[in-house]
């Protein structure tokens, strides 16, 4: 194949990949951020402690995460068709990508939010803030550098997933690599797609790291010792006993 033949193919595929990854990242953040916060808040010692709810959420996230993406994609086909009307094409691929990425991002959010110093939560409560204030003024802003890193990780993972989605008719760079590179022995074309993916991922990683680092440099820690983890001040029974014991 000549360059004039492959060039439009590759640019369309790159655009398709970015389109799928862009939208599914958006959905992953919109869905995963509240889910991750709820995982922390409903846990033992959390501000909204609710252990049964926490167990259920945790299990749902675990099951979704343990499912290989390719299986998830197939399992969700009926659901995808009911939303987009088709199971083929980049729009259809966004549905399983987003659903696969939400629990992934939620776990990363959970880890990031747990790192926030419980003393800050206590401080805002002592000022008369409610749970929503704590989330808005403390948990999200203070974990923002980590949340940005988590988003970067999620985008990179989604690029990988989107290549898998390419194998079942979603289009994108993965689709090119499989159809032309693997099935038609166009090894050169396969390597070009790999190179494009490598460049895209490097740029995203670099941009994400840069954003996280510049936020971090501005902030830094406020206290010398990070306290345990987010304690719910109203009823810190178990956590406090552990601390005392």
């Amino acid at each position: 194949m000549t360059w004039s033949e492959t060039q439009p193919l590759l640019s369309q595929a790159s655009w398709d990949t970015l389109y799928m990854v862009g939208w599914s990242t958006l959905f992953a953040v919109v869905g995963g951020l509240p889910l991750g916060l709820l995982l922390v808040l409903t846990d033992r010692g959390g501000l909204l402690q609710n252990l049964p709810a926490n167990k259920v959420l945790g299990q749902v996230v675990n099951v979704a995460r343990s499912m290989p993406f390719i299986i998830l994609m197939v399992a969700l086909m009926t659901f995808t068709r009911s939303i987009t009307g088709t199971t083929i094409g980049r729009e259809a691929a966004i549905v399983p990508l987003a659903i696969g990425a939400v629990p992934f991002f939620a776990r990363l959010v959970e880890t990031a939010v747990r790192e926030v110093d419980g003393g800050l939560v206590e401080a805002v409560q002592s000022m008369g803030g409610n749970t929503w204030t704590v989330v808005r003024k403390v948990l999200v802003p203070e974990s923002l550098p980590s949340l940005i890193s988590s988003t970067t990780t999620t985008i990179v993972a989604l690029i990988g997933y989107s290549a898998m989605a390419g194998t079942v008719g979603a289009g994108g760079l993965g689709d090119i690599a499989i159809r032309y590179g693997y099935q038609r022995f166009e090894t050169q074309l396969m390597w070009i797609t790999v190179a494009i993916l490598a460049v895209v991922i490097s740029v995203i990683q670099f941009a994400g790291d840069f954003a996280a680092r510049s936020l971090h440099r501005r902030g830094g820690r406020s206290g010398p010792a990070p306290r345990l983890r987010l304690l719910r001040a109203e009823e810190p029974a178990a956590a406090a006993v552990d601390k005392v014991a």
Partner: peptide, 24 residues
């Protein structure tokens, strides 16, 4: 904490050992 309690808390200042300032 209900609204009343939160309003009462806002009238009690509190200072902490590790300062608890928001770093951002």
């Amino acid at each position: 904490a209900g609204k009343e309690l939160r309003r009462a808390r806002s009238r009690i200042g509190m200072v902490f050992q590790h300062f608890n300032l928001l770093s951002t």
